[in-house]
C-alpha cells in the first residue's frame, strides 16, 4: 500500500508587483525580499508562474531601467539588458559585427516571443524539461531533493555532457550558445557593485545543485552584454536541428565562428570558436575541437575529426542516444556551411 500526497492543479499564486525606477531600487527590492523576482519581458517567468513551477511573492518590473542601448566602443559591442531579442537581432551593428548572435536569436522562439523577450531575460531562460514543468512529477531543479524524473524517464531532449544524477536538463536558449561562441561577458550590478561575468562562467553545470542555473547572485541585476570584436563575421553559422521548422527547441544546435585564411596550402582555419546547444545544462563550448581545427586546412576530413573529438566524454540516457550521432553530424554540417567547404 502506498500513499502519495502531491500538488495538484496549477495556478498563479498571489503576488505583489512593483516597478523599479533604477538599478539601485531593483537591488534594494531583491535584497529585502528573498522571494522577489525581476521581470522584464516575462516570456518565461510568467509561463512558469502559470504552471505553478515558480511562485515569487513579489515581481519587480525592470522595464523602466531602460538598458536599451546598443553601442560599439573600443573594440566591444555592448547590448543593454532590456533590449528585446527582435530589436537586437535586426540591429545593424549586431548584423555587421556579430551576425552569429542575430542568427541564433532568430532561430529561437517565435516573432511574438522575440518581441517581448529581453537579452537579460534570455540569459536566465530556464530549462524546458517536462519533469521541471509538471509539478506532480519529481524534479531536483524545481524542488531539490525530490529526485530527477528525466533520468530514467522520457529524456529525448536531455543532456549528453556535464549532467549529474541530480539533473540531466539542458539550457534551452539559442542566444546563449552564440554568446558562448563569441566570448561574451555579462555585465551585472549588485549590492557589492558592478562586475563582468565571462559567459562561460555565467551558466553552471547541475552537480548537486541543479536548482541553480547560473552564478548570478540573487540580488544582482543584469545590465548588459559585452561582445569583443572578432574577425568572424564572414564565416558564421547557427545550425539548429529540431523536430519542426520553427518554434521548437533544439535537439542539437551548433554555433560556428570561423576566421579563414588563404595560404599556400589552401584554405586554412586561422581562428575558430564552436559551441553547442541542446547538449548540456549550459551552452557547451567545444574547446578541444577548436584546438584541433586551429591552423588546419578547412576540409570535411578535418571537420569530422574535430566533431569526433568534441564528442569525447558524451553520455546518453536512452531516449537521447541519437544525440551521440546527431551532435557530431551537426558539427560537421555547421562547419561546412560556415566555411563554404563541401569536401
Amino acid at each position: 500500500m502506498q500513499y502519495r500526497k502531491l500538488k495538484l492543479e496549477v495556478a498563479v499564486h498571489n503576488f505583489q508587483y512593483t516597478r523599479a525606477k533604477n538599478a539601485a531600487g531593483a537591488i534594494a527590492e531583491l535584497s529585502k525580499n528573498p522571494a522577489a523576482k525581476l521581470v522584464a519581458g516575462g516570456t518565461n517567468l510568467i509561463d512558469l508562474m502559470k504552471y505553478g513551477v515558480m511562485a515569487p511573492d513579489r515581481l519587480v518590473d525592470i522595464n523602466r531601467l531602460s538598458y536599451n542601448a546598443i553601442q560599439k566602443e573600443s573594440g566591444v559591442l555592448s547590448i543593454g539588458a532590456t533590449v528585446t531579442n527582435s530589436v537586437a537581432a535586426a540591429n545593424e551593428m549586431v548584423l555587421q559585427y556579430q551576425p552569429l548572435l542575430s542568427q541564433a536569436m532568430l532561430a529561437g522562439a517565435s516573432p511574438q516571443l522575440r518581441n517581448k523577450a529581453t537579452m537579460g531575460g534570455n540569459l536566465l531562460q530556464r530549462t524546458r524539461c517536462p519533469y521541471f514543468y509538471d509539478i506532480s512529477e519529481p524534479c531536483n531543479k524545481r524542488e531539490p531533493g525530490t529526485g530527477c524524473g528525466a533520468l530514467k524517464g522520457y529524456n529525448r531532449m536531455h543532456a549528453i555532457f556535464g549532467a549529474s544524477d541530480a539533473c540531466i536538463a539542458v539550457n534551452p536558449s539559442d542566444m546563449n550558445v552564440a554568446l558562448v561562441a563569441l566570448d561574451a561577458s555579462v555585465q551585472v550590478t549588485g549590492p557589492k557593485g558592478k562586475r563582468n561575468i565571462p559567459i562561460a562562467e555565467f551558466h553552471r553545470l547541475p552537480g548537486k545543485h541543479p536548482e541553480l542555473d547560473n552564478t548570478l547572485d540573487r540580488r544582482e541585476v543584469i545590465t548588459g552584454l559585452l561582445i569583443p570584436d572578432n574577425a568572424f563575421s564572414k564565416h558564421t553559422t547557427y545550425l539548429k536541428v529540431r523536430d519542426r521548422a520553427s518554434y521548437a527547441f533544439a535537439l542539437i544546435s551548433v554555433a560556428v565562428a570561423l576566421e579563414m585564411e588563404e595560404t599556400t596550402e589552401g584554405t586554412t582555419i586561422k581562428e575558430v570558436h564552436l559551441a553547442m546547444g541542446g547538449v548540456a545544462h549550459k551552452p557547451w563550448r567545444l574547446t578541444a575541437a577548436e584546438q584541433l581545427l586551429k591552423g588546419k586546412k578547412a576540409t570535411v576530413e578535418n571537420f569530422k575529426m574535430a566533431a569526433e573529438l568534441a564528442m569525447q566524454g558524451a553520455k546518453s540516457y536512452g531516449h537521447n542516444d541519437f544525440k551521440l550521432k546527431l551532435a557530431p553530424n551537426s558539427i560537421v554540417q555547421a562547419l561546412k556551411t560556415a566555411s563554404g567547404i563541401k569536401a
Binding site: D134, S136, E137, Y154, R244, A248
Partner: peptide, 30 residues
C-alpha cells in the same frame, strides 16, 4: 507523419508533452 506524438511516461501514466510548446503540429515554415 513528421511530428505529432502524445508521449506518456509509463511510470506515471502522465502525458509528457501536454502543451502547445511541446506537442508539435506543423507551423507555417513546415
Amino acid at each position: 507523419a513528421l511530428m505529432e506524438e502524445a508521449v506518456i511516461d509509463d511510470r506515471t501514466g502522465r502525458t509528457i508533452n501536454a502543451s502547445f510548446g511541446d506537442y508539435h503540429v506543423p507551423v507555417n515554415a513546415d
